[in-house]
């Protein structure tokens, strides 16, 4: 959203938007062919022991409300279009996290006939979290690192 304001005010608005985004990123999760292992670990991060909501991260349903797309698994031929569609429906700026070895390299499914490959062959990825599956701590660490990197962007831009 760009309002018709002076450059100075635009800078202030950007800062506010960025502050809000870092403090409550909304995430959407899509499984494009995973074995489910990463998905249950992502769900586990929401539950009391790990409780990712304390960072303001909320997992919710619609791509149109999401800032972060969390992908698991290699991309299968059938889910490729879905993955692209979800990515395109997300408003800018958007960030993609690839969770798990399969999402990063295709993992154990390399060479299976219905697997196209890894996530960044289809959509650009900002953060990779390796592991089969990554522990919930690793997933939280990945998300926090992504948020920290966001924090750095506008400051350098304004400097």
């Amino acid at each position: 959203m760009t309002l018709n304001v002076t450059q100075e005010w635009q800078g202030v608005l950007d800062k506010i938007k960025n502050w809000a985004r870092i403090n409550s990123p909304w995430a959407i999760h899509y499984n494009s062919g995973s074995c489910n292992g990463c998905d249950i670990e992502i769900l586990a991060t929401l539950t009391p022991r790990y409780d990712v909501e304390r960072f303001g991260i909320k997992l919710q349903g619609s791509p149109r409300h999401a800032d972060v797309l969390i992908c698991t698994g290699p991309v299968t031929r059938q889910s490729r279009d879905r993955l692209l569609r979800i990515y395109e429906q997300m408003p800018d700026p958007k960030f993609v996290i690839a969770v798990g070895t399969c999402a990063i390299s295709g993992g154990v499914f390399q060479g299976c006939y219905n697997v196209i490959g890894h996530i960044d062959e289809v959509i650009p990825v900002n953060m990779y979290i390796p592991g089969c599956p990554p522990r919930p701590e690793a997933i939280i660490d990945g998300v926090v690192k992504l948020l920290t990197s966001l924090q750095a962007v506008p400051e350098s831009a304004t400097a």
């Binding site: 998905d39 249950i40 698994g73 299976c112 006939y113 089969c132």
Partner: peptide, 29 residues
């Protein structure tokens, strides 16, 4: 079929020990 990966066919190009790790990843639960 959204997560159909072709595991059964994939097993035919891996040896018996490698298949153990592939088949384990049919389902994480």
């Amino acid at each position: 079929g959204y997560v159909h990966r072709g595991i059964e066919k994939g097993t035919e190009s891996r040896n018996w020990a490698q298949n153990l790790y592939l088949l384990e990843r049919i389902c994480g639960i």
